[in-house]
Measured scan of single mutants.
Amino acid sequence: MTEYKLVVVGAGGVGKSALTIQLIQNHFVDEYDPTIEDSYRKQVVIDGETCLLDILDTAGQEEYSAMRDQYMRTGEGFLCVFAINNTKSFEDIHHYREQIKRVKDSEDVPMVLVGNKCDLPSRTVDTKQAQDLARSYGIPFIETSAKTRQGVDDAFYTLVREIRKHKEKMSKDGKKKKKKSKTKCVIM
């Protein structure tokens, strides 16, 4: 069974824990209790493949930012979460993405942009803004509501699919490099 290491990042209060708990335990946590770091595991079937999701729910508070490099190193894919009623959390996505790329030393890291709290009427981040940002990053965008469960499975499952595509691409690139290195030079 394939294991996928997913990391949920975003500013404090955007609903990272609520999304994760909704996926794992099928219930909505409405009281806000700032996370330092929590880890969850769940076995699911995605596109006919049974897999184990190892999900790291991270601290959004700035005082825990020193811990970010460590979990970013171990993560295979990242859910970059903002709240649709919090423009600052949307603007912060850029910083999370840049930090992930720096730590992973790669421009090509599996990510999904997630606009959470889409059940709320007080939207300050337009869907088109988020779609445009995701398009500019070359990553999928999904709106979710941890409260109603809308888009929750889709967000995590899409990230797994992005990781699969990335692994497939990397193995193809690896095979191309191996083929090239088999060419021999004969000096007579």
Rank of each mutant, 00 (worst) to 15 (best):
T2F: 10
E3K: 11
E3Y: 07
E3A: 09
V7P: 09
V7C: 11
V7M: 05
V9D: 02
V9T: 11
V9P: 02
G10S: 15
G10I: 02
A11Q: 07
G12E: 15
G12M: 13
G12T: 09
G13K: 05
V14T: 10
V14H: 15
G15A: 02
K16H: 03
K16F: 01
S17E: 01
S17M: 00
S17V: 01
S17N: 00
A18N: 14
T20D: 05
I21W: 04
Q22V: 03
Q22R: 10
Q22M: 05
L23N: 14
L23C: 09
L23M: 11
I24S: 04
I24E: 11
Q25I: 15
N26C: 14
H27V: 09
H27I: 12
F28N: 01
F28E: 01
F28W: 09
F28P: 02
V29M: 11
D30F: 10
D30A: 10
D30T: 14
E31Y: 15
E31K: 04
E31D: 12
Y32P: 02
D33F: 01
D33L: 00
P34N: 01
I36L: 11
I36T: 02
E37L: 00
E37S: 00
D38G: 00
Y40K: 00
Y40R: 01
R41Q: 08
K42D: 10
Q43G: 12
V44I: 14
D47M: 09
D47H: 11
D47Q: 11
G48Y: 08
G48V: 06
E49D: 10
T50L: 14
C51S: 11
L52Y: 12
L52R: 13
L52P: 15
D54A: 03
D54Y: 03
D54M: 03
I55L: 08
L56Y: 00
L56A: 00
D57M: 00
T58K: 00
A59W: 00
E63W: 02
E63A: 06
E63I: 03
Y64W: 04
S65R: 07
A66T: 06
M67N: 00
M67T: 01
R68M: 03
R68Y: 01
D69Y: 02
D69K: 01
D69E: 11
D69Q: 03
Q70V: 02
Q70A: 12
Y71L: 00
M72R: 00
R73C: 05
R73V: 05
T74E: 15
E76F: 06
G77K: 01
F78Y: 04
L79R: 00
L79K: 01
L79A: 05
F82T: 15
A83Q: 13
I84G: 15
I84L: 14
I84K: 14
N85Y: 06
N86V: 04
N86D: 15
T87W: 08
K88C: 07
K88L: 13
F90R: 15
F90E: 05
E91T: 15
I93V: 08
I93F: 11
H94T: 04
H94C: 15
H95L: 06
Y96P: 02
R97E: 06
R97V: 15
R97Q: 07
R97N: 05
E98D: 06
I100T: 03
I100W: 03
K101N: 09
K101Q: 11
K101E: 12
K101G: 08
K101L: 12
V103R: 04
D105M: 15
S106M: 15
S106N: 10
D108H: 11
D108K: 13
V109P: 04
P110R: 03
M111C: 05
M111V: 04
L113G: 03
L113M: 10
V114I: 09
V114H: 02
G115H: 08
G115L: 11
N116G: 09
N116Y: 01
N116C: 14
K117D: 14
C118V: 09
C118H: 13
D119Q: 12
D119T: 15
D119C: 06
L120A: 09
L120T: 10
P121G: 12
S122N: 12
R123L: 10
R123C: 13
T124N: 10
V125L: 08
T127N: 11
T127F: 15
K128S: 06
K128W: 05
K128N: 06
Q129N: 10
Q129G: 14
A130G: 06
A130L: 12
A130D: 12
D132C: 05
R135W: 09
G138V: 03
G138C: 08
G138W: 03
I139A: 05
F141A: 03
S145Y: 08
S145P: 02
S145D: 15
S145H: 06
T148A: 15
Q150M: 08
Q150F: 07
Q150K: 03
G151P: 15
G151V: 13
V152D: 09
D153F: 06
D153S: 07
D153R: 05
D154Y: 05
A155W: 14
F156P: 04
Y157R: 12
Y157D: 08
T158M: 14
V160S: 13
V160C: 14
V160A: 07
R161I: 02
R161M: 04
E162F: 05
I163D: 01
R164T: 15
R164A: 15
H166E: 06
H166K: 12
K167Q: 08
K167R: 06
E168V: 07
E168A: 08
K169N: 09
M170T: 05
M170I: 03
K172D: 12
K172Y: 14
D173K: 13
D173V: 04
K175V: 05
K175D: 10
K176P: 15
K176V: 07
K177H: 14
K177P: 14
K178S: 09
S181R: 13
K182Q: 12
K184N: 09
K184E: 10
C185H: 09
C185N: 05
V186W: 13
I187K: 10
I187V: 11
I187L: 10
I187E: 08
M188P: 15
